[in-house]
């Protein structure tokens, strides 16, 4: 990812102002391996849409409007089963970790135009966050192209996976355990991102606390574990700075 992004002279798929209106082929190359394990999850959502109390076309449309797997799953499975308020709250709580992604990207968004700041969050899913966080800071324009290419790529592929899941999902044997694939993939991503000791501290503490909190409803354990991990990481960062007596403010300037 060190080389400058190569652009493919293909049709414009980014909003006006996104540079020369080209897609970033590098983003597709980076994004594809992350999409593969999301396919079975898309199938799970597709099957749930078919079985939902909600009209199938509305359940399907959540891929267009909500674009967040866990929230969509909560919405279609609880609709007609729980009260409307309970459905809405559960659907929002399961993805509350996105608040942390959003805060973490704020310093990067400082160098971006207003339209991008409003459009980009819609595409802020786990995979997009993980990839843009691993990416060394380039120019604002190349970051924008990379981000939007990833976002649109995952959006279209997710819609395809959920649609396909509604048709063929029920035929896949559960014995294949494809439901575990996203967790396996995220494990690989975490390990690859552990290049500094505070990140190791953050991940280990987050995992340990999340395990203890795994019984909480609505997957709140994710938020509790992540919060503990971020705090522990912050303490480790401070110790690192004290130990080496360095100021690392420069690292934050893209």
């Amino acid at each position: 990812m060190d080389e400058p992004p190569r652009s493919a002279p293909m049709s414009a798929s980014v909003p006006p102002g996104g540079g020369p209106g080209r897609i970033d082929r590098r983003a597709i190359v980076d994004g594809f391996p992350l999409f593969v394990p999301a396919v079975p999850f898309g199938f799970v959502v597709g099957v749930a849409v078919v079985e939902s109390e909600m009209p199938a076309v509305v359940g399907w449309s959540t891929s267009l409007t909500i674009f967040a797997g866990a929230s969509q799953l909560a919405t279609v499975t609880l609709a007609g089963v729980a009260t409307l308020w309970a459905v809405a709250v559960a659907a929002l709580v399961v993805n509350s970790r996105h608040v942390m992604y959003s805060a973490a990207l704020a310093p990067t968004f400082r160098h971006q135009p207003t339209w991008f700041r409003w459009v980009a969050p819609f595409f802020l899913i786990d995979q997009v966050f993980a990839l843009v966080a691993l990416r060394p800071d380039g120019s604002p324009a190349s970051f924008r192209r990379y981000y939007l290419t990833l976002g649109v790529f995952f959006y279209l592929m997710w819609l395809a996976a959920v649609s396909l899941g509604m048709v063929v999902g029920p035929a896949i044997p559960t014995g294949w355990r494809l439901d575990v694939a996203p967790a396996v993939m995220f494990t690989g991503m975490v390990v690859i991102s552990l290049t500094r000791s505070p990140a190791v501290v953050a991940a280990v503490v987050a995992a340990a606390v999340a395990f203890l909190a795994a019984g909480l409803p609505d997957r709140l354990g994710i938020l509790v574990g992540a919060g503990a991990g971020v705090l522990a990481g912050a303490v480790a960062e401070a110790r690192l700075v004290n130990d080496r007596a360095i100021t690392d403010e420069q690292e934050f300037t893209p």
Binding site: P107, D126, A183, A226
Partner: peptide, 29 residues
Amino acid sequence: LADRELPVPVQRALRNVGPAVLAALVVVS
């Protein structure tokens, strides 16, 4: 937060959001 200069400790804390959230996500799932 985009137009605010966050305190350095907060900026440092935000650097580890990725590993922390993904690790917690894996364990809970």
